[in-house]
Amino acid sequence: MPAEYKGVVPETEHARETDLGFARIDIDRARRTGDPEVVFGEGKTPEQVVATLRALHRAHPDRAVLATRLSDEARELCRRELSGAAVDDVGRTAVLGPPPAPKGSVAVVSAGTCDLPVVLECVATVRAFGSRAEVVGDVGVAGLHRLLAQRERIAGCHVVVAVAGMEAALPSVLGGLIGLPLIAVPTSVGYGWHLDGLTAWLAVLNSCAPGVVSVNVDNGFGAGVAAARIARCAGPGAV
């Protein structure tokens, strides 16, 4: 790792940011919003990812800090350089530090195994942001009995994230089965001309089931943040 990324430049006068030279880390964000800044790995070198995670961990030593969309090389360097980091090759995430005590629970429900990268990005986010994630996988509507068999388990959570590609019917079906906050994540999965997830996204936006809201295509992170914050308000110990 280059020497200039080994240390951390001292914080600004008001201790609201840490200047790494290539990035200004918002170390005040946890105070303002309740959650630390998250590292978006795309476009960053492996060394920059590690340096940023290290700076965030230094600012928040008692709770988890998260990096998403990490390349193979960045994940490997995280394993070597950051002791104790939990690295997920499928979800392309790294978490450094202890997660907060969970408040509330989020059911992360996926239509198929091919949605797993988005699912695991969401799961890592939910846990880093202080809620419990319950994964219910491979229950797409082509085998509706599989979903119905998991209905009570899903309904036992405080929030549902529904991850689905192709025609993205899963969020609408869930919206007709349960009365929980439901966040849809359309994915860029499907045969033929699925327009990189646009087909799934438009289907979700036009859902007949009331109460279904959506994040952008493949945005497991965004869904995880929203779901965890809702669950924290609903779960035991919420104010």
Rank of each mutant, 00 (worst) to 15 (best):
P2A: 02
P2C: 00
K6I: 10
V9L: 14
P10A: 06
E11N: 03
E11K: 06
T12N: 15
E13N: 10
H14F: 14
R16K: 15
E17D: 08
T18L: 15
D19M: 05
L20W: 01
L20F: 03
G21W: 02
G21Q: 01
G21I: 01
F22I: 07
R24I: 02
I25P: 00
I27Q: 07
I27R: 15
D28R: 15
A30Y: 02
R32Y: 05
R32M: 10
G34R: 06
D35M: 03
E37L: 12
E37K: 08
V38K: 02
V38H: 05
V38I: 15
G41H: 04
E42S: 10
G43N: 03
G43V: 05
A55N: 06
L56A: 08
L56C: 12
H57F: 07
P61T: 02
D62S: 14
A64R: 04
L66F: 08
A67G: 11
A67Y: 08
R69H: 11
R69N: 11
D72N: 13
E73R: 14
E76P: 00
S83E: 15
G84F: 11
A85G: 08
A85D: 07
A85I: 09
A86N: 06
D89M: 07
G91E: 09
T93G: 08
V95E: 05
L96F: 08
P98R: 14
P99A: 10
P102I: 05
K103E: 13
K103R: 15
S105N: 08
V106G: 00
V108S: 06
S110M: 10
G112K: 12
G112E: 13
T113W: 12
D115T: 08
V119H: 06
L120N: 00
L120T: 00
A128V: 02
A128Y: 01
F129E: 03
F129R: 12
G130K: 00
G130I: 00
R132M: 10
R132V: 00
A133T: 08
V135P: 07
V135E: 15
V136G: 07
G137V: 13
V141F: 10
L144P: 01
L148G: 04
A155Y: 05
V161Q: 06
V163D: 02
A164N: 01
G165A: 11
A168C: 12
A168Q: 05
A169L: 14
P171I: 10
L174M: 11
G176Q: 13
G176W: 13
I178A: 03
G179V: 01
G179Q: 03
P181R: 06
L182T: 09
I183H: 03
P186A: 13
T187P: 12
V189S: 02
D196T: 05
L198E: 10
W201R: 13
L202P: 00
S207Y: 02
C208T: 13
S214T: 15
S214H: 06
V215Y: 10
N216P: 01
D218C: 11
N219T: 03
N219M: 03
G220Q: 02
F221Y: 15
A223D: 02
A223S: 05
A223K: 03
G224H: 05
G224Q: 05
V225W: 07
A228T: 01
I230C: 04
G235V: 04
P236D: 14
A238C: 14
V239N: 12
V239F: 14
